[in-house]
Simulated scan of single mutants.
Amino acid sequence: MKRLLLAAAATFALAGLSTADTAPAAPKTNLLANVKAGEPMRMVYELDARAMILIIPATGRASFDVELKPNTYTIKSKVRTTGLADVFVNYNMELASSGFVRAKELKTSGYVSQNRDGKKNRRVELSMKKDGFTMTANPRFGDLGDPAATQEQAILANDPLTALITFALEPRAKGADPCGGPIRVFDGKQLTYLHLENKGTANVKSPAWSGQAIECHVTMDKIAGYKAGEVNKDTLTGIDGPLRMYLAPLENGSHVPVRIVADTDRIGKVTLQARTLRFEPLQTASAQAGAGGAP
C-alpha cells in the first residue's frame, strides 16, 4: 500500500520553489456539491515518477479516470513502475473503486486491486458497508498483521484510490487548513493514517498545472495490518524526512497534488509530477436520452 500511495497520491524535479506568507485565494465553488446537484463530472489525472538509480533513470506512471455522478462514482487506475527500488518496484497494477458521492466526500463501497508483478500476482477484492467490510485475496495473505484492522477501524477509512481522490476533491471550510487530512486509507489489510502539515506556499511548474501551490509535509501513522512492531511508526519506509506534497488550489474547489517529492535512503530524490489534469462534463445515459428526445 505504501508504494501505491506514492505512485498514486496521496503511486518531480523542483524548480524555482519559494515560500510566501499568504495562502492562495479560497475557491468559489464546491465540485462535489455541484455533482450532487446534478452536474456529473469526469476527472482525468496522470502522475509521472522520475528517479535515478546510479546513472540509470527509473520511471513510473499512475493514471486515474474518475466518473462522478450525483449519487455514485467509479475510479479506474493503472500504475506501472520500472526500477524504483524500495519506493517503487517493477509491477503493473490495475485498480478500480466505486462508492457513494456525498456533498463533502466520497465513500468506498467496493475496491479491486490486481497486481501483476510476476511473483504473487495478487488480486484483492474489498467490499465495505456501514457496519463492516469483507475482503478476499488470491493468493491469500500469510496473515492480516499484528494487530489486524478491526471492522470498526476500517469503515472509517477509504480504499487507496478513493482516499486520494476524495482528499483532492473534498471542500476545505473557510479558514481551515488547506492541507486537510488526515487521510485514512484501508486496502483490505493495512490501515494507515496520513497526516499533513501546512508549510506555506511554493511556485510549482508542471505539465498539467503551474502556479502558487500549497506545500504540505506528510507523515504516516501505521494503525493496523502491519508486522508486529511497525504499528504507530510515523515514517514512510525508505523515506528520509517528510514526504513533500504540493497542492494546486483550483477554482472548482479541489486541491489536487501536482507535485510530490521524497528523499529516499537508497536512490536519492524521487519526484512525481502531474502530467495530465482536467475536468470535463460527464455525459450520462439519462442525459443522452434526454438530449435525443428533445425537439
Rank of each mutant, 00 (worst) to 15 (best):
Y45C: 03
R275T: 12
M93Q: 11
E105T: 15
N203V: 13
A213Q: 03
A176Q: 12
V204W: 02
V231M: 00
Q190K: 14
R50C: 00
A103Y: 09
A137H: 12
K76D: 12
K78A: 00
D143N: 15
K36E: 08
A85Q: 13
K199R: 15
P171R: 13
M43F: 11
Y45P: 06
R140Q: 13
A23Q: 15
A202T: 15
C216S: 02
F64Q: 09
N115Y: 10
S97K: 10
L4Q: 05
S109C: 07
L4V: 04
F64D: 00
A25P: 10
A33V: 08
P182V: 10
N198H: 14
E152A: 10
K120S: 00
L4A: 01
R278L: 04
T192E: 02
N198Y: 11
N203W: 08
I267S: 01
P27H: 10
K69G: 00
P242K: 13
M245D: 02
L106W: 10
F279Y: 14
N121A: 00
A15G: 00
S206D: 08
V258S: 08
T235Y: 11
A285Q: 13
I267P: 00
K199E: 10
D86C: 05
M52L: 07
L164C: 01
P40S: 14
E197T: 14
G110Y: 13
A26L: 04
N232Q: 05
A62H: 14
D117K: 09
Y226D: 00
G142M: 11
F12W: 06
D265H: 14
R61Y: 01
D263E: 11
G99E: 06
G145V: 07
